[in-house]
Design a protein around this nucleic acid. Structure first.
Lengths: 210, 210
DNA sequence: TGTACATCAGTGAACGCGCGTTCACTGATGTAC
DNA sequence: TGTACATCAGTGAACGCGCGTTCACTGATGTAC
C-alpha cells in the first residue's frame, strides 16, 4: 500500500524533524503543520502523535536540534581557526554563529521564535544553555588573558552576542542585502563586523592591547 | 443593534491597526486574524476587506506605521539627547532603537517578520528606508567630523544596526533576562552596549580619537 | 528452533474549529440641483 | 431649505479549506518460554 511497503517506519522521529526543515526551506515556518509534515514523509497524519505530543513539542525538538548543531559548528570553528588567543576565538565563534544562521536559516528562525517553541522545555533549555556557555567561556578566557581592559565581562558577552545575532537576523530577513551597495557574502560581513568590534574593544593579538 | 449604534464607523482603518496592536500584545502575532481584529472592534468580519485587500496588507500597513514611529522616536531622541557630536548622536539613536523595540514589541516583531509582511510594498519600503537613512546620515556625519578612523562607513553602519537590533530581538525573546545575573533595564543595557561599541571603535567626545 | 503473546507504531475516520475571501444586500452620507 | 440619488461603508450568510487532536483499529516486532 505504501510506496516503501513499510508499516513501521524505523526512524520516524528523525524523519519528522527533517520534514520540518524541508517545509521551512520551501515555504516558511507558517506552513509547518503536523499534517503537512506527515504528508511529506508519506505517513498518516495521526502518526506524529506517537513521537510528539503536540505541534509545539515538534518545533521545540527541532529548535533543540538547532542549538546542538550551532554548538557543534561553533566549537569546530574554534578548533580549526588557528586562533592565537581568546579574542581570536571570539571572532571565530561570531563568524560561526552567522555562518550557521545564514546557511541553516530554517533552524535559526525556529530557535528564536519564542511563540512557536516551549522555552521552558528542559532539553531545549539545556541545549541553548550549552550554546551560550561557549560564548561565556570565551569571554572568561579573554579576562584571564588580561585583554578585557576596563570592560564588564557580562556587557561584553551580551554585546558580542547581540552583534552577531542582529547581523544574522537582518541578513536572513533580507534587510542587509537591500542596504549595501556591494553585495557581500554574509560570512565576510560577519568577519568585518566582529573584527571591527573585537579589535576596537579588546585590541588585536599582534598589536598592543588598549 | 451595535453598541455604539453606529453603522459607519468613522475611522475603521485606524481602529483595525489599533486592534492588531492589541491582539499581539495580549496573545501574540499568531493570533492575529482578520476575523479576530473585526471582532475586537465590534464590526462584521467582512468589514476589513473595504480597507485592506488581505491579511498581509493589514500587517504590512501595521509594520509601516511601526517604521514611522521608530523614525519619530529616534529623531526625537537625538534632538533631546544633548549630543555633542555625531558619535553621541549615534548612541542616542541606538538607545532609541532598543527603547522603541522593547516598549512597543508588537510593532517591532511585525516589522521584521518577513513572512508576514509584503516587503516590496511601496509604503513599507519608503518607511523602512526613511528609518535606515537616519542611521546612514549619522555615520556620514561621523565621517565628516573626522572620527571614523580607519573604519569603512558601510561596515560601521551595519555593525551598529546589528548590535542594537540583536539586543532588541534577544531582549524581546526573553534571552537576555535569562543570561544576566543582575536583571537590567533593557535601555540601560542598550546604553552600556552602544557606548562600549561606539567608544571603542570611534573614541569619545571628551577623550581622544584613536 | 518454534510459538504465544504483549507491546508498540502507524492507520484512517471523525470531531469541531477558525480561518480568508466573496457577494448580494442595506443603511448612512453627502452632493447636485 | 428640500429632495433625489449616487456613492460608499458595513452586514451577514455562504463557500471551501486545512488544521490539531482523539480514538478504536490493525499490522509488525521482538521477547519469554
Amino acid at each position: 500500500m505504501k510506496k516503501k511497503g513499510v508499516y513501521h517506519h524505523g526512524d520516524l522521529r528523525s524523519a519528522l524533524l527533517e520534514g520540518v526543515a524541508q517545509i521551512i526551506r520551501e515555504s516558511g515556518v507558517s506552513n509547518v503543520s503536523l499534517r503537512e509534515v506527515a504528508r511529506r514523509i508519506g505517513v498518516s497524519h495521526g502518526a506524529p502523535a506517537h513521537h510528539f505530543a503536540s505541534k509545539q513539542a515538534l518545533l521545540t525538538a527541532f529548535a533543540t536540534e538547532g542549538y546542538a548543531r550551532l554548538a557543534t559548528v561553533a566549537l569546530d570553528s574554534v578548533v580549526t581557526s588557528g586562533a592565537r588567543d581568546a579574542r581570536e576565538r571570539l571572532i571565530a565563534v561570531g563568524k560561526a554563529y552567522v555562518r550557521f544562521a545564514t546557511s541553516s536559516p530554517e533552524y535559526f528562525e525556529v530557535m528564536f521564535r519564542s511563540d512557536a517553541v516551549d522555552i521552558n522545555d528542559p532539553a531545549f533549555a539545556a541545549a541553548s544553555d550549552a550554546a551560550f556557555s561557549l560564548l561565556q567561556k570565551t569571554v572568561e578566557a579573554i579576562e584571564k588573558e588580561g585583554h578585557l581592559g576596563k570592560h564588564d565581562p557580562e556587557t561584553l558577552a551580551i554585546a558580542a552576542w547581540s552583534l552577531v545575532h542582529g547581523l544574522a537576523a537582518l541578513t536572513n530577513g533580507g534587510r542587509i542585502e537591500a542596504r549595501t551597495r556591494s553585495r557581500k557574502d554574509p560570512v565576510e560581513m560577519a568577519e568585518r563586523v566582529t573584527k571591527l568590534f573585537v579589535g576596537a574593544a579588546l585590541g588585536t593579538a599582534k598589536g598592543r592591547a588598549r
